[in-house]
């Protein structure tokens, strides 16, 4: 209560960029706010009515002034637009080597699963210095992943797969909030991100229960749900082979092409009729309701493990094993 913070922690590579833009806009808007308030105050005193019968001077306007105060704000607005867009596009494009963590929002908790299989609830461990990409889904209503210290946020939308990425820069524990209203315990749908030195993170990752990696779980589902009967390794199946499909350009019926990203894979599982690959029949049944959001994530992880464009199968990004260990870094509580 006596510790009164006025500014958020900065613990990701985005924090500095967002704050720089913030301070730029603070400077510009403060300048105009002070200018207008000073002028209003000055005029109000200088031209205070002195006689009851006094009227104002006949001033109609001035074209040059109008043009100036249209053009100057327009130019400044365009600078803000460009700057804001450049930060946003950096946020929208995760680096290729980002470590993936599968994230599912569910009323009222956050479930995370690392590619190696470790699961976490309302807590997310990540290493310093490694780009991390959250692949986000929702089991029920819209939620939103928000980590103020990283200045990142992305909605978890049921029926869609969204992504968010960051690179943590400072060890510590940081708050994670749900910022899309989701009902009764919305304000309890909170968690923390534990940022650790890479070595410590590896130890933590190794300490988890061996449940098999995400792609192994996905492979088991792939067999259990009989996906494998149609999606074979070769081209003899009734469905297209999934080897190397992730990240590739898929040609659909009618000649349109789409990029096979997470959203495409997800849609192809729950709503297979939406996009039919050229040369195949619309035979696949929907798996809507048959697989949970987490199982969907595992299936996606499995399909990804079948290789991405320009990458040999099985080489999905794994967390870096080496790196300097900051002693006791993860114990620092910085809220």
């Amino acid at each position: 209560m006596f510790n009164i913070p006025l500014f958020p922690d900065s613990a990701s590579t985005f924090a500095g960029r967002v704050d720089a833009l913030y301070f730029f806009i603070v400077a510009v808007t403060s300048f105009f706010a002070i200018l207008v308030v000073a002028l209003v105050a000055f005029f109000a005193v200088r031209y205070k009515r002195r006689r009851a019968d006094e009227v104002g001077a006949p001033v109609h306007g001035a074209l040059a002034l109008e043009l100036t105060w249209t053009a100057v704000p327009l130019v400044l607005a365009m600078v803000m637009f460009y700057w804001g867009a450049s930060v946003y596009f950096a946020m929208a494009k995760p680096p290729a080597n980002a470590m993936e963590i599968y994230t599912v929002g569910k009323r009222w908790m956050w479930k995370f699963q690392h590619v190696t299989g470790q699961r976490e609830i309302n807590q997310l461990h990540v290493p310093i210095g490694q780009p991390v990409k959250l692949v986000i889904g929702s089991e029920d209503v819209i939620h939103s992943v928000y980590i103020p210290a990283f200045r990142v946020k992305m909605d978890a939308v049921p029926g869609r797969t969204t992504t968010l990425w960051f690179q943590a820069t400072k060890a510590g524990r940081y708050r994670l909030f749900c910022t899309e209203y989701c009902g009764q315990k919305h304000s309890g749908m909170i968690g923390e991100v534990v940022v650790m030195a890479p070595g410590e993170f590896q130890q933590w990752l190794a300490g988890g229960p061996a449940t098999g990696s995400m792609s192994e779980m996905g492979q088991k589902l792939f067999t259990d749900l009989a996906c494998v009967t149609c999606h074979r390794d070769d081209t003899t199946g009734r469905g297209p082979s999934l080897a190397g499909v992730f990240g590739s350009q898929v040609t659909l019926q009618g000649g349109r092409t789409v990029t096979a990203d997470e959203q495409y894979l997800r849609e192809s599982i729950v709503n297979p009729q939406a996009k039919i690959v050229e040369g195949y029949q619309p035979l696949m049944p929907t798996f809507q309701g048959l697989v949970s959001e987490e199982q969907l994530m595992q299936l996606i992880a499995y399909v990804k493990s079948l290789g991405t464009k320009g990458q040999a199968p099985g080489q999905t990004a794994a967390p870096a094993a080496e790196g300097a260990q900051a002693p006791g870094a993860a114990d620092t509580v910085t809220k």
Binding site: R17, A33, V37, M80, W83, V152
Partner: peptide
């Protein structure tokens, strides 16, 4: 004045990501 000027913060894509909601 304050209401309008703070809209400029929210219009900026990369900054709105942080302060949205």
């Amino acid at each position: 004045l304050i209401g309008g000027l703070t809209g400029l913060f929210l219009g900026a894509l990369g900054l709105d990501v942080h302060v949205h909601d």
